[in-house]
Every structure is written in structure tokens, then in C-alpha cells.
Design a protein around this nucleic acid. Structure first.
Lengths: 221, 221, 221, 221
DNA sequence: CATGAATGAGTGTTCATTCAT
DNA sequence: TATGAATGAACACTCATTCAT
């Protein structure tokens, strides 16, 4: 465990305060207006730094994008891996924790996930696309292991298409997060404040997905 | 009903051959490289027309985007509505047809759906966003009606969150469509041709989602 | 002869008025401040056109440079070749005409020759460098032929290093052209107008070089 | 004469090791890619010093250029002057030594001479241009004196345009040095190593120019 | 004395759009 | 109706230089 933590901190590149401000601004603007729709001037202004600093620190706009992803994906991967590692609970409980983790991740870090979605849509073979693919592969491995252990213990059914279940998990959360305005209008939630809405949606998604997974994975009704 | 149809057909603007070529090219390129990543020159070249034609016909690049959406969303809405209208079958069978319709729609018209996803992610209040919102609202209404009829007939359970189910439906399909490369690599499907892959994924999604909906909507195991 | 002229005109690319204005301005500014020292904005201003026109017409700054060279070098090569082709005079007279041609060429087209000199100094392997090399090779061939014919006829000495003689011809003219200010100050010619100075220097160079070539090529004292 | 020497040595500024490294790197890069084509970062990297050092030590990029010239031109001037001063030989022999000196100077210090040529081409009134002009004037004076003494002694002809002869000397050597690639290709010398080529060209130039000067300056055939 | 961080001005180029024809 | 020519604004990026330390 300690070793893990050490590695984690070693892998994470240390950025200066300004560099972090740039990364954060980039993350925000890329999610709001897309990569091509965001100019380095916008990012610089948002971060309160000179335009030239972006090239100075990150080399290019593309490299900045990579830095944003490098940082985030590393964090995510490690979180999922640690999550599944050391719990003394049933496999279904682990699945439920995983679901809550994904829900929280998408809800809390909407901005980054929007960038990630858009990058996947574009299907271009960039370093960023490679990072996403790698992240998804490793996460799938972790979850596959969890499901297989549950199957061995008899807790889960055989013949589960883990990938489709993951698509349902990730897809449902993405869809709800992205359709915020639609969701609010239809369900008459326009009066909710942002935190209230987030709390509400988090709970809804959690219950919905846990139920979906339970009836899919186990034999219980 | 007749009135509805009439209105609908009135809404559909008639375009010249060149205009249609432009719309089609725009749809393709917007999905491949995004709105900002696509230049009007690219679109003009792809469509085999002069650059100035785009401003000439559609007024601006933004307006062209709207035209693309106007056309597509109208088509989609009509298809869903007609689908649910005249069938002499059980409500679950209607749901299954609906699922297949969504799967086919996303798989066959990936390009347009990618643009739509990206536009939703951006969350900007554009005419295009309004069109998407309107489409989703009307589709939701149609489906709500279907589910409620199924509940009245005792075929479906009470207390179904239709919106979350729709998010699962749309989200899962989107996710799979978008993660094509990931899906292929993990499932060792790299040797499949494009049509083979599409057929495969269509079937997988259809079975998976029908199963999900069945156990969610009905009391049957 | 007619065929030659036809070819010549076929080879020469036809440029629009604006394109020619750009080429001319580029030639001037490149010679005055160098390629790197000249911005496309400077060229555009000098030519009285929009900055974007340069990329629009020539693709890039580099390509503009190539266009300048393409045009000039073609003209030069053809002139030299035609010069040596059809004259009914002695070989020494031909050499003298050649000398005058070089002197005139360098004096009249100082600006372009300055660019050419600088490009040679840089020794970079650009398309422009290739054009210069090609021009020099073809000119050398023409002159070699002339000298060899003179040697066959007994008019010229054997064992003449044509290349060194050409270096002396070109080098001397270049040197004088480039050292204008030095030349004027030392010879107290500051009061001469530009045309007066050019006339003066042309005569001086012509006599000097013809003398040098005569005593080098022939056996006469 | 002593005073002269004293002044000269006073003029020579003493530079630190780092400063010399910068000057040397600047000389190299300016010759290879031109003044505008060379960035201070390139120079700093080549010299292994911090970028800011250049402004710190020399004030600006322009001032660095001046420093490069100040150093070199002083060295050159002194060499020529000393050369002509103390020899107990004929005037023609002195001229021959002078020719070899120029040939060696241009061949050995090609890089610096390329910068000098380029600066002359630009014709701008910079401190650097003034330094070059001053150098050329003083060298011309020295040589004028030599020729005039030769004329007095009857060794040389009357009516010699020293300046044109100097232009031929400097121009020919420059031309050959600059046209290295052309020279090698045409004379099939591509297989020669760099030192072999330099040796070859030095000899060629020496013989060619000494011959040219002999027949020009003296009455001998 | 020395330097990493930072900057504003400037680079070449591309953009969506307009306009004369 | 249709378009080649043209444009100003914006783009990502590099520059020589400055400054706090």
C-alpha cells in the first residue's frame, strides 16, 4: 500500500502555481468550448497569465491538452485500482462502491469528462486519445477481475458481458450529466441550486445503476 | 394527426442539389473533426462547390450547422412518432422496436449523432441546442405515453423513472458507438470489417438493452 | 529562334498585376533586409495588398521566395544562352559581350543579386538553393562551350580554368556592387547621382574585366 | 607607429571565458543562419550559457554582433598592417604574400566572412557597417602604399586601379568560398574531405590570383 | 554575479466572410 | 445565380528583452 502511494506521488508531475492555474483554466475552457473552440489567449486570460507562458511551460496547445489529461487520468486510474484492492466486503458491495465512484467522478469532474467525451467522439489518433484508451483498458481490467472473483464465489451469474455493463454505467452517467438542462426542464427542477441538483442527480443515478447492476449480475430478483 | 403530418412536411425545407451536397458534407466533417475543427473550405471542397456558396446559401457557418440539425432532427422525430403510433402489438414489443430503432439510428447515423453529442457537451444556448432540446422533449413525450399505456394495461410496473431509462438507452448506445476502437481491441474484433462490426454491435446492444428494459419494466424474471 | 522564344514564354508563369507587385516588393525587401529580416506584413504593405494575399497567392513566404527566383533565374539563363548562340563574331568578342551582360545584369538587378548572394552564403538546402545551383551550372556549360570553341579555333590559350575565371568575373562585379558606399567614399564619387554612378561603375568594370580576360585567355600582350 | 599599436591594444577589449564562448557561438550561428535567422536562445544554447546572459553581458543581440565584429576586424587589420611592414622582399613578393593572406583569411575564417558579406549586402548604416567600412579603408590604405612604392621603384606599371584589383582579389575568393557546393559538383571533387578541399582550393586560388596580379601590375608577360 | 520566470510585440498563417462581376 | 478575388481578424507560436531574486 505504501509502495503504491509512493509510486503515485512519483508519477504525478509537480507543477508550479501558475502551471496549475493554466491547466485548470484549460480544463474548464476545453470542456466549455472544445479544444479547437478555445484559443490559448482565452486560457491565458482565464488563468491570469501571459499568452506566451503557455508555450513557455507546455510547449504548445496540444501539449497543454496532454498535460491536462496526463494529470487527470493518472489520478483516476489509481483511485479505481485502490478502491477495488483492499475491501473486506462482498463483491456486490464492491460493485456498488464502484458505481458510486463513477457517479461521483462524473458529477464532480464534469468539465474534464466533457473534454474526454469530445476527444473520444473525434476518434483522432492523438497522444490524448492514447491516454484515454489506456485509462479505459486498465479500468476495465480492474473491474473484470472483480466480476470474475464474484463469479468464482458464486455471488454473480456466469456469462456477463462486462464491457456492455460498463458502457451502460459510463453511458448513463454521461448522458445525465450532459443533459442537465433537459433533465431539469422535464423534471421541473429549475428551482434547484447547483449543489442541490448535483445531490439529487447523484442519488438518482446511484439507485438506478445499483439496481440495474444487481438484477443483471446476481440471480436475486 | 393529419394536421401534424402537414405541419411537419411544411417544416421540411426543400434544398437544391448543391445545398444538399453541402449539408451532407458538413454533417460528415463536423462529426469527424468537430465544428471548430472544420473549415468552410473543407466543406466546400468535400461538396465540390465554391467556398463562397456556403455563405451565399446558408448565410454563415453557424446557420449551416442549424440547417444540418433542422433537417436531421425533423426526420428523427417523425420516425419515432410514427413508430409508436400504429402497431397492433404489446407494449413491451413496442419498447423493443423502439430500442432497435435507437440502436439502428445511432449505429447507422453515427456521424450526425457525434455532432449532436458534442453540441450537447458544449451546453451553449444556440439555435442548434434548442433544436436538440426540442427533439429530446418530444421524443420523451412519445415514450412516456407508451410506458404509461403499458402501466395502465398492467404490462409494466409502476414507479418507473422513464427519463433514467432513456438515459441508459441513449447513453449505452452512444458509449459503445463512440468507443469503437476500445471495444474492438478489448474484444479482439480488429479483424472484423466495418459492416461485420456494425452487425455484431447492433445485435449485442439490442439483446443487452432489451434484457435491461424487460427486467426493469416488467415483473417477469 | 522562334521556337526558343516560344519556349521561353511557355516556361514563364503568368502572374496577375497584384502577384507581380508582391514579387517585386519581395525582391526589393529581401535584398534590403534579408529573407528573415523581412516580414510578410512589410511585403504586403510595400506592395499595397492585404497580408493574407501572400499566403493566398503563393502559399507561404518560402514559396514566394521561390517564385521570385523561379522568375528571375529563368529569365537570366535564357538571356545568356541566346547571347552565345547566334553571333557572327570572334570568340573574344563573345566573351566581351558576356562580360558586359554580367556587369549589366548585376548593376541593373542589384536587388535580386543581393538576395542570391545571401542565399548562397547561407548554404541551406532549399528549393531556392537548388534553383541557383541549376542556373550556375547551365550558365557554366554555355560559357565552357564558348571557351572550348575559342580554344579549337586557336583564338584562346589551352589550360584555362574556366570556373576560376567565372569566379573572378562574378566575384569582382559582386564586390563592387556591394561595396558601393566604400567605393564612392574612397574615389570621392559622393557627388554623383545614382545613374551617373551606375554608368561610371559599369564602364570601369567592363574595361577592367575585359582586360583581365583578354590577357588570361589569349596570347596577346 | 608605436602609438598606433598602443591604441590598437587598448581597443581590444578583454572578455571573460563565457563572453568569448558567446562571441564564438554567435559568429558560428550568424554565419550559418544569418543574423535574423539566429535566435539568442540558439546562441545561448550553443555557448552553454543562460539566455539572459547575452543581454546581460552585451546589452542586446545587436551589440553582440558589434562585439563579434569589433574583435575580428581589429585582428584582421593588424595582421595586414604587420604583414606589409617589415619584409625585406620585392614589392611583387609582398603582393603575393598579401594574396595568400587574403586567401587564407577567407578560407580559414569562412564563417566570419560570410557574416561580413551578408552585412555588406544589407547596406544598412549600423555600427557594424561602420566597422567594416573602416576596416576596408585602412586595408586599402596599406595596400595603396605598397603599390605606390612598387610604382616608384619601377617594379609596377603606372595607372593601376588598386580598388578594382582589390575587388577582384576579394571578390574571387569570396565567390569560390561561397560556391563550395557548386565548385565541388562541377569539378567532381565531392569525394574530397573538407581539409583536402580547403588545401586544393587554397592552392588554386593562390596561383590564379598571383598570376592575375602579376600580369596586371608588372610589364612582364 | 547570474538566472529562471515572465512579458509584449511580432511572426507566418488560416479563418469566415464579403464583394465586384 | 454563382464565383474568384480579396480582406480584416484571429490563430498558435517565437522573439529579444526585462526583472526579481
Amino acid at each position: 500500500m505504501c509502495r503504491e502511494t509512493d509510486n503515485m506521488e512519483k508519477q504525478t508531475i509537480e507543477y508550479s502555481e501558475k502551471q496549475n492555474a493554466i491547466i485548470q483554466s484549460a480544463e474548464k475552457l476545453f470542456s466549455q468550448t472544445g479544444f479547437d473552440g478555445t484559443s490559448v489567449r482565452d486560457i491565458a486570460q482565464e488563468a491570469g497569465v501571459n499568452v506566451a507562458m503557455i508555450s513557455y511551460y507546455f510547449g504548445s496547445k496540444d501539449k497543454l491538452m496532454e498535460a491536462v489529461f496526463e494529470q487527470k487520468t493518472t489520478q483516476m486510474r489509481l483511485k479505481i485500482e485502490n478502491l477495488l484492492l483492499n475491501n473486506n466486503i462482498t463483491h456486490l458491495e464492491k460493485v456498488n462502491i464502484l458505481i458510486d465512484e463513477y457517479v461521483d467522478k462524473f458529477v464532480d469532474q464534469q468539465e474534464f469528462h466533457k473534454i474526454m467525451m469530445r476527444e473520444q467522439i473525434l476518434e483522432r489518433s492523438t497522444p490524448v486519445a492514447a491516454l484515454i484508451l489506456e485509462l479505459k483498458k486498465r479500468n476495465l481490467q480492474s473491474i473484470k477481475k472483480l466480476i470474475q472473483e464474484g463469479q468464482k464465489s458464486g455471488e454473480f451469474k456466469k456469462h456477463i458481458d462486462i464491457m456492455l455493463m460498463m458502457s451502460t454505467l459510463v453511458g448513463t452517467v454521461s448522458q445525465v450529466v450532459v443533459s442537465k438542462r433537459f433533465y431539469c426542464e422535464v423534471n421541473h427542477l429549475q428551482n434547484l441550486t447547483e449543489p442541490e441538483y448535483l445531490k439529487y442527480i447523484r442519488k438518482k443515478l446511484s439507485v438506478h445503476l445499483k439496481n440495474l447492476f444487481k438484477i443483471t449480475l446476481t440471480n436475486d430478483i
